[in-house]
Simulated scan of single mutants.
Amino acid sequence: MPMPQEYQLASQQYEAFLLDAMESMDLVTRNRTYTCVQATLLAFRNRLTAEQVLAFADTLPVVLRAIFTSGWSRDDFNPEFGTMEDWVADAKALRRLHNFSDDETPAGVAKVLHRHVDLPHFEQVLQQIGPDAMRFWGFESTAEAETS
Rank of each mutant, 00 (worst) to 15 (best):
E80N: 08
D76I: 14
D86M: 11
L27R: 12
L9P: 04
Y14E: 08
V109P: 00
D103K: 13
S24P: 07
R96S: 15
A143K: 10
A107Q: 15
Q127L: 15
F77C: 08
D20P: 05
E144C: 12
A55D: 13
F68R: 03
T83L: 11
E146W: 03
Q8I: 11
D103Y: 10
R30K: 07
S148V: 01
R65L: 01
L18S: 07
E23V: 10
P61Y: 00
K92M: 13
D86I: 15
Q127F: 12
R30S: 06
Q8H: 05
I67G: 06
Q127E: 13
Q52G: 04
D102Q: 04
A66K: 03
E146V: 07
K92T: 06
Y7P: 10
R95F: 07
A43I: 04
A91C: 06
S101H: 05
E15M: 12
F100H: 12
F77A: 05
D90A: 13
N78C: 14
N78V: 12
E6Q: 14
D26P: 05
W137N: 03
Q38I: 07
A39N: 02
P2E: 11
I67E: 10
E104G: 14
L113G: 08
F122S: 06
E144W: 15
A133F: 04
T40V: 09
D102I: 05
V125H: 11
L41T: 01
M84Y: 12
V125C: 07
E140Y: 09
Q8D: 13
Q38K: 15
A55Y: 06
F81D: 02
D132G: 11
N31F: 11
N46F: 13
E51L: 13
A110V: 02
V112M: 03
R96N: 10
V109H: 06
E85Q: 12
D118L: 09
V109E: 01
Q5R: 13
V109Q: 02
R45M: 12
